[in-house]
């Protein structure tokens, strides 16, 4: 299992995410030459080492994010934002357990 550090959800199994691809700057469509546009769309660097990638957290927060992965070791060099993991939310927002059973209409 490969853990991918989603900045919103925390470390997640890679099967919960979709690999979008290498992260490149999009050229200006008004000024880019066909060669530049083709390179942007189809050519990849594919280095053996750190690579800036885009991932989509499809089962979690449904957000796109950028991560740097070492393609030789599958280790991620960036980590989730501090305080972004599940359960580290403001305690004042937490559910108060005195009043329960909201399901109705049964």
């Amino acid at each position: 299992m490969m853990l991918v550090p989603c900045p919103n959800c925390g470390p997640r199994n890679s099967s919960d995410l979709r690999y979008v691809g290498e992260s490149h700057s999009r050229p200006n469509p008004n000024t880019a030459t066909p060669e530049e546009w083709r390179t942007y769309l189809y050519m990849e660097d594919n280095p053996a080492g750190p690579l800036k990638e885009t991932w989509y957290c499809r089962s979690g927060c449904r957000q796109y994010f950028t991560a740097v992965r070492n393609t030789s070791t599958n280790e991620f060099e960036n980590h989730p934002l501090p305080g972004a993991k599940i359960g580290s939310v403001d305690p004042s927002f937490h559910y108060v357990s005195e009043s329960k059973s909201v399901e109705g209409n049964q």
Partner: peptide, 10 residues
């Protein structure tokens, strides 16, 4: 995942 926590997952 304390009481009150919410998660979306497969």
């Amino acid at each position: 995942m304390p009481d009150g926590a919410v998660v979306s997952a497969s």
